[in-house]
């Protein structure tokens, strides 16, 4: 299945844009998607504190993704 990924903050720099779609096997979890993203974009392995939301909710790594889900990548932001 294809999953839309939307990036914020420094995650935009890593995927070189705001949005990217990644193909995953069915029943992939967020944790597996995180691994897949790190393979495709090695800098994600360094951004250990990156959080994931699916549609409008913060989720943990065991969340199972559905084909129409939109994954939002939220890195910490420090500026003030």
């Amino acid at each position: 299945m294809e999953i839309e990924v939307v990036a914020f903050g420094i995650a935009k720099d890593i995927i070189k844009g705001k949005q990217v779609s990644i193909s995953l096997s069915d029943n992939f979890t967020v944790g597996e998607a995180r691994k897949k993203l790190s393979e495709q974009y090695p800098d994600f392995s360094k951004l250990t504190s990156l959080r994931f939301a699916v549609n409008a909710d913060y989720v943990q790594d065991d969340y199972v993704l559905n084909p129409k889900d939109e994954v939002v990548l939220i890195p910490p932001v420090s500026g003030g």
Binding site: L47, T48, L50, V77, S78, G79
Partner: peptide, 10 residues
């Protein structure tokens, strides 16, 4: 947890 220091620019 915080990220590695050089990953979040000010």
């Amino acid at each position: 947890t915080p990220p590695p220091p050089d990953m979040v620019p000010s």
